[in-house]
Each structure stands twice: as C-alpha cells, then as structure tokens.
Design a protein around this nucleic acid. Sequence first.
DNA 1: GCAGCTTGTGTTATCGATAACAATGCTAGC
DNA 2: GCTAGCATTGTTATCGATAACACAAGCTGC
Lengths: 337, 337
Amino acid sequence: MRIKMTDVAAAAGVSTMTVSRALRKDGRIAPDTRKQILGVIERLGYVPDQIAASFSSQRSGFVAVLVPSLNNPHFAETVQAIIETLEVDGTQVLLGQTNYLPEREERIVLDLLRRRPEAIVLTADAHSARTRKLLGDSGIPVVEIWDLPPDPVGHQVGFSNFAAAKAMVTFLADRGYRRIVYVGETHDADTRGARRREGYTAGLQEMGLGPPRVHLQSAPPVSMTEGGAAYHAVRQKWPDADAVMCVSDPCAFGFMMQAIQSGVSIPRDLGIVGFGDFEVSRCSAPPLTTVGVDAVQLGLMTAKLLQERDDLRSGPARLVEIPFRVIERGSTPAAAT
Amino acid sequence: MRIKMTDVAAAAGVSTMTVSRALRKDGRIAPDTRKQILGVIERLGYVPDQIAASFSSQRSGFVAVLVPSLNNPHFAETVQAIIETLEVDGTQVLLGQTNYLPEREERIVLDLLRRRPEAIVLTADAHSARTRKLLGDSGIPVVEIWDLPPDPVGHQVGFSNFAAAKAMVTFLADRGYRRIVYVGETHDADTRGARRREGYTAGLQEMGLGPPRVHLQSAPPVSMTEGGAAYHAVRQKWPDADAVMCVSDPCAFGFMMQAIQSGVSIPRDLGIVGFGDFEVSRCSAPPLTTVGVDAVQLGLMTAKLLQERDDLRSGPARLVEIPFRVIERGSTPAAAT
DNA sequence: GCAGCTTGTGTTATCGATAACAATGCTAGC
DNA sequence: GCTAGCATTGTTATCGATAACACAAGCTGC
C-alpha cells in the first residue's frame, strides 16, 4: 500500500488537516510544526495524491492548451513559456494537438473539459459549432492565441495575421516589386493561413498591383519540402513573377533552396519572403525577409492572463495585442538609399 | 451548478451505475439502454468529471512524458506519436520539459508523480539520485527513450548514440577524411550528447585517426546560430581540419552556412555532417549528410509498449532497439565508384 | 418444471484529500 | 484578573464517480 496522508499524520502525531496545511502555502500553521511534518514526509517518501486533492478542493490545477501541432517551433515556444510561467503557481498544462483539424479539435476539447481545467487556451482558428458550444457551456475561461479573429470565443492574445500579411505586401511594393505571387495552404477555410492570404489580396488591391496570383500548395502546415515543390509550380504558372510571398518560413526556405538549385539568384532574379521568423530564416543563405512575432512573449502574456483566472471568469473579454514587424534580410534587395 | 451523473440518471430513469456503464466500453449494459442514456447526456450537455472518475477507480488515465525540450522536432514528433496512439484508449499524456537540466527533471518528476500516472516516459539522460529513488519507490513503470544507457531505470526504447556516432566516424574515414573535428555541447556529463562525443573518440581511435579534436560550443541544445559561431572557433583552432562532425543537424547547418558565407566550398574544401536528420538537412544547399532515426517510429514503439502497462509493472525490463542509419548527402563527397 | 447460468440493473461502501467550522490555549489591553 | 482576539490545531462532512456485490428476470437443458 502506498503511503497516504493519514500515515504521515500518525507518524507526526498530528491530524491530516495539519499535514495538508504543511504541504500548502496558505494554511495557518506554526513554522516548527510545518518543518517537523515536512521532515516526516521526506523520511516516509510520501507523495501527495493530487487526484484526491483536486477532487476534494474542486480545483484541478490544470490549464488546457491546444495547439495545431507541436512540430512548429513557435507553438512549441509558446507552450514552453506557458508551462514555465504557470508551474511557479503549481499549475500544470494539459496539452492537446489538433493537427490543424477542427473535428479533432472538437474531440480533444471534450477530452480536456472532462479534466475540469481552470482555463483553456486554443489557437485562434476555425472552431466547429459544437466546440464553441462546449466551451461556452463549460463556464471555463477561454483564451484564443496567435490571431485576433473578428468573432472571438473569449479572451485573445495575438496579432492580426491579416494586417501582418498586408504590411508585407506594402513592404514588397515599396521595394519595387510588381508581380507578387502568394504561396499558401489548401483547406485554409477560416484559418490563420487564410487571413494571411486575405491580407495579401487586400494589400495588392490597396497598392494597385493587379489580380492576385495565389498558388495553394498543400494542407497546413506547408513543409520545406512542399515549399520546394511549390517553386516549380509557381515558375510554370507565372514565369514573370518578381517576388514570392510564402505562408510560412519553412515554405519559403524550401522554395528558395529549389530556386537556388535551379540557378536563380536571390534576390537579384526573384525576391522571396516568408512569415514567422523561424531560426532557419536567420541562418539561411541568403537569410530570409519575413514577418516576426515573438512566440515566447506571446506565451508569457498568455500565461500572465491565465494567472488572473478569477477575473477572466467574470470580467469583460480581454485583448492583448502582440506586435509584429517586417524583418528585412538578404532575400529581398536592400532599400535604395 | 454543473450537471452531474445523478442528474443524468434521474433524467433517464436509471441509476448512476447504469449511466457510468453507458459511458464506458466495458460495463455490461443493454444496447437500447445505452443509446437512450447517451441521448439524455447529449441533450443535457453532460460532461463527465474525470477527476472524480479517476479518484474512484484509482486510475488516472495519464501517462507522463518528459522531454528536454519541445522545441526540437524529434521530441515533438515522438510526443505527437505517443499522444496520438494513446488517445485511442482514452489515455492522456501529461507533458514535462526538463530544459536539459537534471534538477528541473527532479522537480517535474515529483510534480508528475502526484498525478499518479500509469507510466512515465523520460528521455535517457543524466538523472539525479533523488529522481531515480522517486521513480523506483513509485511502483510506476518507467520507460527511457532516445538512448540506450548502460544503467537503465526501467524499460528502454531507443538506439545507441555511441554506436551511431562511431558509425559516422567510420563513414567519414571511408570517404578519406583524416582530420575530423567534433563540435559538441558543454555541460554534457552523462547525456546523449556525451555519448555521441564518446562514440566519435572511440571511432577515431579505432580508425587510427590520432587525438580527438573536440570543440565544445555551448550548453545543449546547440542552436543554428551557435553552430555558426562554432565555425569561426574551429577554423582558428584547427585550420587544417578536413571534416567537421556536429552534435546535431541544426548545429551543422549553422556551421555550414557560416562556412559558405566565408567562401568555403562544401564539400570540396570541407566535409560537414550532422546528427538527427532534421528537415532542414534535407533541404539545405548542399543537403547535409547525417545520422537518421525515425522519431515517429520511436514514439509509436514507446506508445505500444505503454499499452502493455500491466506487463510493464511486473514483467522483466524490456528493450526496443530503433535502427539508425548514416544518410549520405551532398555535404560530403560521393564515394569513389 | 426446475437448477443453474446469463444478462441487465441497482445498492452500498469507498477512494484521499480539503472546506468549513469548532475548539483550544495564549497574549494583550484594560 | 478578565475578556476579546489571535494563532494554531482538530472534527466532521463532503466532493462525484466506480468497484464489488446483490438481485431480478429470462433462458437452457435435461
């Protein structure tokens, strides 16, 4: 039999309530008593049963976080920052991966809600009607991150992918590009990728750069390899393109590597830009011009918001905007001085 | 008040036990009764309380997984594969990140054990004495992954980093390289990085390639940027080096990009190899020669092992070896035919 | 036609901690 | 010296499900 709190209480000559207080920060207990009890706990190797504690206190000590995939450094960094910030309060993160599929998201939200998380964080993306209902009925604070959609479920921490993509088009137009191709994702209904695509289109229109040239390569996330495949498709469809804007850095990197291997000189013959400021973009030759958002900062701000759980439950919807910026590098020519 | 099982039972005109059985696969229950109850559950929007269920059944439904960092595509893929395989049985994954720090690992193991996971997966690396004791006393099956250390805590799924690094040295020697530098990690006592370094040294010795040339760049994980920094240090220390073997692909990629920008031609002037077969290595120009291990496969095999929880608890220590292979690409010259 | 089995459902006890309240002893202030 | 109030500890009830066992009804085979 595993050692439980009653065993510790008996060994220390106190009641279980006193042991319980010794283990937590808040309960009023004499410092000497606490020290003695902690000694007994150490000696017996007692490990508290958090399930029983959660059941009794009706507080799970969990925050649920859903991301499309861990295999994306930004989401990984955000999750990492949330985990590290919350663990200080003893809150653990229950992680879910949607694989970019709303149906999967729905199932996972249900699984996570069973655990009674104290808040739930999702990436702002297409949510099924049932997901929205589940979240709404749960009474649990919801935070959407990484985009600022017009119809939020709850609170928001992120930036406008639409505005960021539009800013990138403006940047390219300023550099003299006129025939800008966009390489994006298929199946992007109501996703962050779609908002970037819409930002591209809006940007073109605003700058008077003619009809959009959109190539949809594959379902999100577009890998480096798929970005490479896009190169050949784009070259065939729009041989006169002078710049290519990719839905993400990995896509742009793959695209650029294929271009270089085909003898195209970057940025002389073709400008290439990505999205997300992945590490590979800083180290590639040439380094990639991109849009950067601080994923760690985003995670920290989200965690900070989560620490105000009580306010989130009752208070008004909060919106934390994370800044983005166009980062100019060697894959586009330097500005004329 | 949230709806609970008694509410559902009352609405369906049955006992809570029958509702409980309707929700699970095993309980014996008439198909019609189950259908009716599921209908009531749907109508009421009842979400079962997993905490209460876990408390009552004394089964948490969790498996704990500790990785050094999520910000490494291999660990992310492994975790992803484990999550997806186990979720079919309704088992959730409780994730922890050690940030490559044994002290952190110890704290996190304790936090995770409180949740009474049904098994615990850690990356094979240095563990503190207290971590080993905690794990041993817990009575919970332990699986170490990603390396096969000589003193395992429990079961193992992985490959020998030592053998893989040695194989890479043999490969380089076969290609005619004689002055091979190793770029590794500082603070690598008893880690997977150390085993690669040891494999390198053993390989040199076996091939009669003189004393090791080891450059320790920074604490794990060595980033692309740090790999770039290593280039300059290595060039200065060993100007006559003809090949560089890096502790990881990101390190090798950063190194190679710096080399190229410094006018070095790869592989003509210098051979460069990495470790891990990251996607960037397949797409870089030139693509990187590396050692590949299938992270998804590793995750799947781990999950499969975890599904036999009962056998793990009592049975003998299991060892699942995952194959590795040297993947030859453009950063080393083609073999003479 | 009845023992013995199977199937489906209900009853009761219980998992291990914590909340809420009660009780005790002690100190300060008058 | 007495009391209010604080600091510390104990007592009792309880969180919401499930395990184990009990029980009723139908069915089988002789």
